[in-house]
């Protein structure tokens, strides 16, 4: 599904990614761990098509070269990034944002746009699965939401848009145990043999709930080590110091 070959990324004349290789197949859950500044968030940003990075190398998503696609086209083709810091957008109603987003993705896929009533029914159902109070949906997007509410809202968007590849950038940060479980349940219930996940995290604790097939350790902009789920537990004990 996703194939990254020799990816380099620079921002403000600083090399962040230095020849990263990664393959993700449908049905797989990959976790990326690594110390601060190792390039985890840069990888997420580059995959989402954020401006400002100079990149080299190949990123293929289902045979399409991602370098040719704008951010919105990537999203329409099924790449979803759950932001580490979801943005507060004053004046934009959450419901209207969600419907605009869903319809933009549907339209790009050649599907019919969804009408307001059907949408409201759908979103109500998805929100209740994640324990999101309906009232949040009529508020301004993320404005005044707590950290946990913002992260839940990201997972709600994921479940609504039904991406093929979901990238979760430190979705566990700022979550209490209950919220963490709800978010993990949200991910687990969406997981199937046709979609895949790339989970960026500092801690093993999210991986206790969402079991990864592979764990990669990122160091100096490269994958320094790859292992199975047990690698996370090992790292929890030994730290990143021995990996380079």
């Amino acid at each position: 599904m996703l194939s990254i070959q020799n990816l380099e990324a620079r921002i403000d004349n600083k090399n962040i990614l230095n020849g990263l290789n990664l393959n993700i197949n449908p049905g797989e859950v990959h976790a990326i761990m690594g110390p601060n500044g190792s390039g985890k968030s840069t990888l997420a940003n580059v995959l989402s098509g954020k401006n400002g990075y100079e990149t080299k190398g190949l990123i293929k998503f289902n045979e399409t070269d991602l370098n040719d696609l704008s951010t919105e086209e990537r999203a329409q083709k099924g790449i979803f990034l759950a932001f580490q810091y979801p943005l507060e957008i004053p004046g934009v109603n959450t419901n209207i944002f969600l419907r605009t987003s869903l319809n933009a993705v549907r339209k790009a896929k050649g599907e019919k746009e969804i009408d307001t009533l059907t949408f409201l029914k759908l979103i109500k159902e998805k929100a209740s699965e994640l324990g999101i109070d309906e009232k949040f949906l009529s508020r301004q997007l993320n404005v005044g939401f707590s950290g946990g509410e913002k992260k839940k809202n990201e997972i709600l968007q994921m479940k609504l848009l039904q991406p093929k590849l979901s990238i979760l950038d430190e979705t566990d940060s700022g979550l209490d145990i209950d919220a963490l479980r709800i978010v993990a349940d949200g991910v687990n219930s969406y997981k199937n043999k046709d979609n895949a996940f790339l989970i960026i995290t500092h801690y093993q604790r999210l991986l206790d709930y969402i079991k990864p097939d592979f764990i990669h350790v990122l160091s100096n902009g490269k994958i320094a080590k790859t292992g199975g789920a047990e690698l996370g537990i090992e790292l929890e004990k030994t730290g990143y110091a021995n990996i380079s």
Binding site: S48, S70, T71, E72, A75, P86, L87, L161
Partner: peptide, 12 residues
């Protein structure tokens, strides 16, 4: 903010 909205498939 623009990037956030675009990352949800909304055209620029």
């Amino acid at each position: 903010s623009l990037h956030y909205l675009k990352s949800r498939g909304i055209p620029e």
